[in-house]
Design a protein around this nucleic acid. Structure first.
Lengths: 133, 133
DNA sequence: TCAATTACGGACTTCATGTATCTATAATAG
DNA sequence: CTATTATAGATACATGAAGTCCGTAATTGA
């Protein structure tokens, strides 16, 4: 069980955009080069972030991706959910009613992890960084 | 990102064995029927638990699987690690030194989840159950 | 108006892994 | 010796991740 590389790309891109906070949008070309990933693939990932409302995109010359207002409140969990989906990481496939005791335990543990990821904002992380990336 | 069905099978089997605590070992045949899974497949899963030292197996007639001593201290995390492995669920594939701030955040969150799973013993769960499975 | 630039979306390929089955082997009880 | 049971290897299949290719749409600047 692992988070996908797409999540890795998304988190790093968001960290960079948060640290940069440029007026001008940044093209996927430059963003892709920083992570040694193909632009078209990264584009697909960033489109998910756009649809989740975290960033906005503009086409045409000088277009690209830029943080939206409220960017200071974007958490790790927001980004991860946008890429991985919001399904819980355990589904009891056994037939013993709706409340499986095992399911309850695992989901409670997962909730602890999500609580941490929800409390950690990207903007907080940038604030504590000297070197960027 | 999801826990595998194998983990689901392993957790349920361990819960059942813990609740049953039989003198006689229980054959994979019966264990498999309870979960509607093929015996040979479940066998492969249980072999992992054997190698992890949680249960022991005996071949031949009246053979099967049985809990080992110290079974009262087996945690959810022990079982999950035996099946899924112990690798962390996030690896930064970016090139910026050994300490990636993103990695640190995600791993700290994962540690919170593992802490819960480590504290929850199977035997504790059984103690609070009226109906078994 | 035209051309260059940029994001978006669909189809597709490739590869790794989970899930599962089948069969042969080894060990043990009676 | 035979039946029963776990173990291990080979194999097959489905699914999803990772990534590519190409056509379309929108926008800017000349």
């Amino acid at each position: 069980m692992k988070y996908s590389k797409a999540t890795d790309y998304a988190l790093h891109t968001m960290l960079f955009l948060t640290a940069a906070t440029p007026q001008k949008p940044m093209g996927v070309q430059q963003l892709a080069e920083r992570q040694s990933v193909s632009p078209t693939y990264l584009s697909k990932i960033l489109t998910k972030l756009v649809k989740a409302g975290m960033i906005e995109s503009t086409t045409g010359v000088n277009g690209g991706y830029r943080l939206k207002r409220d960017w200071e409140n974007i958490s790790f969990l927001d980004i991860i959910h946008a890429i991985e989906g919001t399904a819980s990481l355990f589904d009891c496939s056994f037939e013993h009613g709706p409340d499986c005791p095992i399911q309850k335990v695992v989901l409670a543990a997962e909730e602890k992890m999500e609580e941490q990821l929800r409390n950690q904002k990207m903007s907080d992380l940038v604030r504590n960084l000297n070197i960027v990336n």
